[in-house]
C-alpha cells in the first residue's frame, strides 16, 4: 500500500459517501444517472468475485464490502424508494448502457490476463469502469443547474482513478515486474473521460460560478 493508492481509495470512499449523503439526507437523486450507478454495481459485482476466496487484508475486504453494499443500495434507493425515485428523471437518463456492457464483455474475452471465468470477469469490470461514467456525464450536460453534491460526487469519482495512476507509476518504479497494461490503459482512458468535466469544475470553483457543462 502506498500513499497514492490510500488517497485514491479514500477519495473513492468519499465520492460514495457524498452520494449517499445526498440521497439519504435530502432524499433526492436529481442530476444522478441511475445507469451509471447500475454500471458501477456491475463493476463491483464482477470485480470482487474473489471476496470470499482470496483474503488479502482486512482493509481490502472491508472496502470491497463497502463498495458492493453502497453501490447496490444506491441503485435500490433510486429505483424503489418512494421519495427518492420521484426525483429521478428517467426521460433525461437515456444513455443506452447496454452499448457499453457488450463491447466491454467482448474485449474482456479477447484481452485478459488468463482465460478463466474470474479473470475475464475481472478484465470486464476494469473495462466497464472506464466507461461507466458516460451516462452520468451525458446527464450532466442536460442538467441545467448541477447541485454542489452532484458536482463533488463526480469530481471525487474522477479524482480517485487519477490518484490510482500515480499509484501505478509509484509501484512500477518500486516493485519489480509490476506491469498491468489492462488496468493502466483503462485507468488512463477513464481519467481522460473526466478531462472536460475537471476543466469546467475547476473553472466554476475558480470564478465562484455555478457548475455548467456545455451541451
Amino acid at each position: 500500500m502506498n500513499i497514492f493508492r490510500l488517497a485514491g481509495d479514500m477519495t473513492h470512499l468519499a465520492s460514495v459517501l457524498v452520494l449517499l449523503l445526498k440521497i439519504h439526507t435530502i432524499k433526492s437523486c436529481a442530476g444522478i444517472s441511475l445507469k451509471t450507478q447500475e454500471l458501477y454495481a456491475l463493476v463491483f459485482a464482477t470485480r470482487y468475485l474473489d471476496i470470499f476466496t482470496d483474503f488479502i487484508s482486512l482493509y481490502n475486504t472491508t472496502m470491497k464490502l463497502i463498495f458492493l453494499g453502497s453501490s447496490f443500495s444506491i441503485v435500490w434507493y433510486i429505483r424503489n424508494h418512494k421519495i427518492v425515485s420521484r426525483s429521478y428523471d428517467k426521460s433525461q437518463d437515456t444513455f443506452r448502457h447496454y452499448f457499453l456492457i457488450i463491447p466491454c464483455l467482448l474485449l474482456a474475452l479477447l484481452v485478459n490476463e488468463k482465460f478463466t471465468f474470474k479473470e475475464v470477469m475481472w478484465a470486464f469490470s476494469i473495462y466497464l469502469e472506464a466507461v461507466a461514467i458516460l451516462p452520468q456525464l451525458v446527464l450532466l450536460q442536460r442538467t441545467r443547474n448541477i447541485d454542489n453534491l452532484t458536482g463533488q460526487y463526480v469530481f471525487l469519482l474522477g479524482a480517485y482513478r487519477a490518484l490510482y495512476i500515480l499509484n501505478w507509476i509509484y509501484r512500477y518504479f518500486t516493485e519489480t515486474h509490476y506491469v498491468h497494461w489492462i488496468t493502466w490503459v483503462s485507468g488512463l482512458v477513464q481519467t481522460l473521460l473526466y478531462a472536460d468535466f475537471f476543466y469546467y469544475y475547476f473553472e466554476s470553483w475558480k470564478n465562484n460560478k455555478k457548475l455548467q457543462l456545455p451541451a
Partner: peptide, 10 residues
C-alpha cells in the same frame, strides 16, 4: 505471478 499484483488493488 503477476496477476496477484493487480488483484491486491480495489
Amino acid at each position: 505471478p503477476s496477476s496477484e499484483g493487480a488483484k491486491d488493488e480495489l
